[in-house]
């Protein structure tokens, strides 16, 4: 398996073989990110394509100062954000700071039956405005302040969207778990 540094150097020289190697190696994990941020498969594919074009054209800016996969993931997430902003589906939601965070009790709930595919399916059922905030906050680790700048909403809206997203997700996780248990137990 060629070293990633060699593949990057090859890509910088315009080697089509290395470009394809890089794509084949990282496309599956990045496509999962695209699915997480998109409404449908077609949109996910568009994000992946645009993201990879940016990755290849900006490869010279990668200075090996951090994880290459992390750098690519940020590009993909930014591409998804651009797409999201361009659709202009945002609308103001009242600030709700005090909605309690939903918690799942590991003693009472067993989520071991849910695989990554189920979780992805659940997350994609969220309305885009909730999904976007949940992804950025819970999965990417951005703060509400950063999210508010990224998708042009107030911090309060970011918090309320996150709270609603969590609530919806918890219900769906429970529902999925219940259905799965029923199916498995007959």
């Amino acid at each position: 398996m060629p070293e990633i540094r060699n593949i990057i150097n090859g890509c910088l020289k315009g080697s089509r073989r290395d470009q394809e190697l890089l794509y084949r190696r990282y496309a599956p994990s990045l496509y999962a990110v695209c699915l997480q941020y998109s409404d449908n498969d077609e949109e996910a594919r568009d994000i992946l394509q645009e993201g990879f074009i940016k990755i290849f054209t900006n490869l010279s800016h990668f200075k090996y100062e951090g994880s290459f996969e992390g750098w690519m993931r940020r590009i993909i997430v930014n591409t998804a954000l651009e797409k999201y902003r361009s659709r202009n589906r945002l609308y103001m939601v009242e600030d709700i700071d005090m909605i309690p965070e939903p918690f799942v009790d590991p003693d009472n709930e067993d989520y071991s039956g849910l695989d990554a595919g189920d979780l992805m399916e659940i997350i994609r059922m969220l309305p885009p405005k909730y999904r976007m905030v949940f992804n950025l906050f819970a999965l990417e680790g951005y703060s509400h302040r950063e999210i508010s700048r990224m998708i042009n909403i107030s911090e309060g809206t970011s918090k309320s969207n996150l709270a609603r997203a969590r609530m919806i997700l918890q219900r769906r996780v429970e529902a999925y778990t219940g259905i799965k248990k029923k199916v498995l137990n007959g």
Binding site: A27, P28, S29, Y31, A32, C34, L35, Q36, R45, L48, Y111, L114, D115, A116, G117, L119, M120, I123, L139
Partner: peptide
């Protein structure tokens, strides 16, 4: 759950 999730594009 989604940490190492991969899907073939």
């Amino acid at each position: 759950g989604l940490k190492n999730y991969e899907v073939l594009p």
